[in-house]
């Protein structure tokens, strides 16, 4: 590790979206080695679009993205980033064991005609141990709980031996026992010095591991700072919302249910 190391990711007024629709724009963000960044924001604020854009899965519509100092268009060392996609379950259309899924993480490391080496197998075994599923390595993924399946996806990313983990909602929709286990896995990885960018809307589960918080709202970065500063920011916002402006009492147009004959009583809905 050198001080002159380029940041793991550097975004300059980047915007991403789908086809002709811009979802996030004007993003300036740098993530450095050793950081554990939580990307927060309400549903629909563009968190997933942003991380998928960094990985090249959504269309970049402007600005610059650099990965490890290389512009994303010319970036080919994909194995340096470990992606844990947002999935509620692993595909159940065919049978597959935990080991078979995690082995996929080794593929980018070898040429297409090369068989799995004993080194590959050892790394896969270690990745499965790291997420605490060693005793279930040969079981079918479909028989695991939702939280355990998330850990299988983390193990798959770890098997690629990445320098940074990019995780999309690893704790969403996971029961309490699994969330505890998942938080334990993340803590162990952080203790080892793994850098992370974690999309989440449940900070509580990750509170102890996060070193920095970036908050997205409506496609823009709304906050970027330490966890302590974020707490103050949230408190400030809450205080601000205590102010009552007389004209705020009547629901604004465009934010109301109740405009049509079959709608219930008029009320304001969250934008």
């Amino acid at each position: 590790m050198h001080l002159s190391d380029p940041p793991l990711m550097r975004l300059r007024s980047a915007s991403f979206g789908y086809a002709d629709r811009v979802v996030v724009s004007g993003i300036d963000l740098e993530i450095h080695r050793g950081e554990v960044v939580a990307l927060l924001g309400p549903n629909g604020s563009g968190k997933s679009t942003l991380v998928r854009g960094i990985l090249g899965l959504t269309t970049q519509q402007g600005g610059q993205v650099q990965l490890f100092g290389t512009p994303r268009e010319r970036f080919t060392e994909h194995t340096r980033i470990g992606y844990v996609p947002q999935r509620h379950s692993l595909s159940a259309s065919v049978r597959a064991t935990v080991t078979e899924i995690v082995e996929v993480g080794r593929l980018p490391h070898r040429l297409w005609w090369r068989p799995t080496s004993s080194e590959d197998r050892a790394i896969v075994r270690r990745a499965i141990e790291d997420v605490g599923l060693a005793d279930r390595a040969r079981e079918e993924v479909a028989s695991l709980s939702g939280g355990q399946q998330r850990r299988v996806l983390i193990a798959r990313a770890l098997a690629g031996e990445p320098e940074v983990l990019v995780m999309d909602e690893p704790t969403a929709g996971v029961d309490h026992a699994s969330q505890e286990a998942l938080a334990g896995v993340l803590r162990r990885l952080v203790d080892r010095g793994t850098s992370m960018l974690v999309v989440t809307h449940e900070l509580a589960a990750l509170e102890r591991v996060v070193s920095r918080i970036v908050c997205l709202d409506a496609g823009h970065v709304d906050f970027d700072g330490s966890a302590a500063a974020y707490a103050a920011h949230v408190a400030g916002h809450a205080a601000g919302s205590d102010h009552h402006h007389p004209d705020d009492v009547t629901p604004r147009r465009g934010h109301v249910i109740g405009a049509a004959p079959l709608d219930p009583e008029p009320r304001e809905v969250a934008p």
């Binding site: 990985l55 994909h78 980033i81 992606y83 899924i101 996929v104 980018p108």
Partner: peptide
């Protein structure tokens, strides 16, 4: 890999 998770496959190149 491709049939199991196209997004992941694309992300790893």
């Amino acid at each position: 890999a491709v049939a199991n998770d196209e997004d992941y496959a694309r992300a790893v190149g």
